[in-house]
Amino acid sequence: MIDDYREAAPLEIHDLTVAYQKKPVLYGIDLEVPKGSLVGIVGPNGAGKSTLIKTIMGLVPIGSGWIKIFGKSFKKAITRVGYVPQRESVDWDFPVNVLDVVLMGRYGRLGLLKKPSKDDKDIAMACLEKVKMSPYANRQIANLSGGQQQRVFLARALAQESDLYFMDEPFAGVDAATETAIIEILQELKNRGKTLLVVHHDLPTAKQYFDRLLLLNMRLVAFGPTEEIFTMENLQKTYGGRLTILSDVAVERNLGVKVD
């Protein structure tokens, strides 16, 4: 642990630009996230919040710039990264039970051809226990409430035993009890030195939940400790009308027409 300080930052992004079918979504992002921070990614709809984390995880191709995870490329650091996608991104009628889903968190570590062992099952059960879902282990996933589904996704990410987590709107459409339970787990992970980046859409709770904020609207508006960043000026920059020019220019460049 002595040479811990020498380890590269969990996440470093330099001059990142991302475009969906030639339409730019993210411009010139520069970012260095220190170890053990719990970061809330905040910004209006279409600001590129999900795109940012998807790009970091290699799910969306990079336009230009580079991304390093613990000083390495994403592919090389892949087992150190955990992911919680949006709950709506999967079909909850899929024929698996809760434990099956959590076990998927172990697949990345297992590698090809290996089947999950007893140990993997024990780890998965322990993760379910953490999110208080162990009585539901053998339940078909369709019979879960929204909050329970989100807990299962969180348990799956815990089973990945990663050092850097990306979570896409884990608080969307969950009950108050689940929200509290999730934030407790996030805090605990942070205290254990994990780094977490969480897409969040609710400003008042953002201030309360995260120790760092990343304000995003196609470009990085501000990043830093919450108390410094959470200012009226920054929020206006993020949510206000000034940045619409940026997207207009983007459309103009793409279509060759002027937008009024």
């Binding site: 995880m57 799910l59 892949i78 087992t79 992911y83 996608p85 999967v90 998927m104 990345g108 090809l112």
Partner: peptide
Amino acid sequence: FYKEFLVISFDFSFAQSTGI
């Protein structure tokens, strides 16, 4: 490859994110 087919069928981008 049952486990790989299972995870790509259930959650494609998660499967990608784990290096499968």
